[in-house]
Design a protein around this nucleic acid. Sequence first.
DNA 1: AGCATAGGTTGTCAGAAGACAACCTAGTGA
DNA 2: TCACTAGGTTGTCTTCTGACAACCTATGCT
Lengths: 204, 204
Amino acid sequence: MLTERQEVILDFVREYQAAQSVPPSTREVARQFGCSQQGAAKHLQVLARKGQLAKLADGKWGLQARSVQAHLFEAPVYGAIPAGLPAMQEQEPEEIVAIDPAVFGVRQGRPGHFWFLRVTGDSMTGANILDGDLVALVRREPRPGDIIAALVDETTTTLKRLVHERGRALLRAANPRYADLAPQLLESQGVVVGVIRRVRAGNA
Amino acid sequence: MLTERQEVILDFVREYQAAQSVPPSTREVARQFGCSQQGAAKHLQVLARKGQLAKLADGKWGLQARSVQAHLFEAPVYGAIPAGLPAMQEQEPEEIVAIDPAVFGVRQGRPGHFWFLRVTGDSMTGANILDGDLVALVRREPRPGDIIAALVDETTTTLKRLVHERGRALLRAANPRYADLAPQLLESQGVVVGVIRRVRAGNA
DNA sequence: AGCATAGGTTGTCAGAAGACAACCTAGTGA
DNA sequence: TCACTAGGTTGTCTTCTGACAACCTATGCT
C-alpha cells in the first residue's frame, strides 16, 4: 500500500512526534530527507489520503495522539525466546500490548527491559498462572522465590520458580506433576512481575 | 501549588491536547477563558515554570506526549462500588491504571464502560482470581457463565460467577467454602473480561 | 508605606507555518 | 502514444504563532 519512500517518512513522523510531542513541520521533514518543502508536503498529503496521517488542529500533518501514544507504552509479547537474550531484540514479537509498566511497579526502562511471554502449558497453575496467560517480565538478576523465564537446553523458555535447596539453585514448577530441574547452567531471561489474563465469556 | 485559575487552564490544555493531538495556541486559551492573548500566554508560562507544561519543539506551550497519553488509555480502579451504577461516575477511583482496553478485547468505549475492581477476599480463587488482583470489567449484559461484579445488599460489590440452574439465576463463588446466592434482584455492575496481577518478588 | 504576586489590558512585530501555482522527470500500463 | 502516478523543483503569499513592551489593579505580606 505504501511505497518505500512513504514508509520511511511515516516512520520519521512517528518517531519525531513521540519524542517531541508535536508533529514535524513540512520543512523539517524536507530537511531530514534532503528535499524541498513542497516535496515533503506532498508526501504528507499522500500519507494523509492513505489514512496514515491526519491534518491536525493547527494545520500540521501528523498522527493522532492515540496513535502516537500507542507506540510509547507498548511492550512486545513473545511466544518463546528460543536463543539467548541478545536474540530477543532481533526476534519479531508475536504481538504488541499497550500498557504502562508502572502497573507492575516497573519504571519505564530501555527497550528490552520489559516484555511479555505468552504462557504455554500448565506447569505454573499452582501459582495461578494458566495456559494462555501473558506474564510480564523484567530483565534483572533473579532472587530465590522469583518466578523466572528460564532458558533450558538453549532452545525453549519455561516458566519456573527459582528455589535454593541445600545450597543449590533449582527450578521448580508450581505443579506437582513436574519434577524439579537442577540445571548446570542457569540462564534467566527475565523475572515475572505480573500476569495479564484475558477472560472470555462464560469459560470455566 | 496551583491556583484555581491555573488549575482550570491546565485542565483545558490537557483535554485539548488529548482530543486534538496538538496543544492549544495562546489565543485559543484566551478565547476559551475570555481574556487576552497575553493573559493566556502568561498563565501558560507560569504553568511551565511550575513544571506542569513545557515549551515544545514548535514553540507552543503544551504537555509532553507521555503525559497526554497517560490520560488517554487510563481506566479507573475502584476498591468497591457501594451504591448503584450511576454512583460510579461520581465516586473517586482508588487508582488509575494506563492500559489499552484492546488487550482484553474491548474496543475503546465511553468513560465508565471499562473499569477495574481490586479484588478482596478469596471467593474466586477457584477461578484463579486472587486477593489483591485487579479485574477488568466492562458494562454489558451478563450471560450465564460470566463472572460478574454483583451488587448485593445494595452496599458491597462481590465477584461471582453467574449460573443458571432450574431456570433461576444464581451467583456462585469459585470456592467451595462459599454457598450460592440466589438474590431477588440481581444487579450486575460489570462483566469480568480480564485479570491483572502484580507479582512481587518471591511470594508464594 | 512598600513591594511582590496573580491576573489583566492593548498594540505591534518578526518568524515560521502551510498552501498555491507552475513546471520537470521517470516509470508503467492501456 | 497517451495518461497516470510517484517524486521532485523554485518562488511567493497569507495566516498564525509566540514574544515583547508598557501599563493597570487588586490582594496580601512585611
